[in-house]
């Protein structure tokens, strides 16, 4: 479905990713794990086309998207929920969701997708006429995920969606993530919390200072000595 091959990426003159390769199969739920500054968000931004890699290639469903712009990539079916809950603060909840269906292909499916989003997050329907900046952190995150689903994606990229949310809300969001995936949408999500993430994903890649140091099935990684030492603090 998605093949990222030997990517080098820079912020200005600072190299952030070194020879990163990942491969995702249709219907998978895959985690990218790493600490602050390990390059996780950069990797998602490279896939979304916000940053163009200096070397390497990105192929999505047989199409080379390496040098495409973000708006073209969204049109092909990759939707990112960026970190920091970047909502459109002065638009209503409904308008934030509707703008998600901006891509040509998504417009005809707007009503269908909107119903789906309201079913996943009934609270968004209750608050549809509320100005987005008055929402709580958890509601904002739900709205962001809902807006991303409005683009009718085949691949969903979720960047640190649990950051700063209460455990209860995080549980709710992970539950919804499973539901989204049961609709046949492939998911890549990025997190810092290793233990939790390895419970939710099927496979994971572990990034350290811009390089992939480990990858494999989630349950295998849980048993991996290096992971235990580095992230769980056990010996």
């Amino acid at each position: 479905m998605l093949k990222v091959g030997s990517i080098d990426a820079f912020y200005g003159s600072l190299q952030v990713l070194w020879d990163v390769s990942i491969e995702i199969k249709p219907g998978e739920i895959v985690a990218i794990i790493g600490s602050n500054g390990s390059g996780k968000s950069t990797l998602l931004n490279v896939i979304s086309g916000i940053i163009h890699p200096a070397r390497g290639s990105i192929v999505f469903r047989g199409m080379d998207i390496t040098s495409m712009d973000p708006f073209q990539i969204v049109g092909l079916g990759i939707s990112q929920v960026p970190e920091g809950r970047r909502i459109f603060p002065d638009m209503t909840v409904f308008e934030n969701l509707r703008i998600g269906s901006y891509s040509r292909g998504a417009r005809s499916k707007r009503e269908e997708n909107l119903k789906h989003v309201y079913r996943l997050f009934p609270r968004l329907e209750e608050r549809r006429n509320q100005i987005a900046k008055t929402l709580s952190g958890g509601e904002r995150q739900m709205m962001m995920i809902g807006s991303a689903l409005m683009s009718d994606p085949k691949l969903l990229l979720l960047d640190e969606m649990s950051l700063g949310l209460s455990p209860l809300v995080v549980n709710e969001i992970y539950k919804v993530m499973k539901e989204i995936r049961s609709k046949g949408i492939t998911i890549i999500f990025v997190e810092q919390n290793v233990r939790r993430t390895l419970n939710e994903a099927e496979r994971a890649y572990i990034l350290e200072t811009g390089r992939i140091v480990l990858s494999g099935k989630a349950e295998a990684l849980r048993e991996e000595e290096k992971v235990k030492k580095a992230y769980f603090g056990t010996r």
Binding site: V74, Y102, S151
Partner: peptide
Amino acid sequence: IAASQDAVAAQLKGI
């Protein structure tokens, strides 16, 4: 309106 509030987020909406 979206582009005026957050241009990068707008690009991620396919704009």
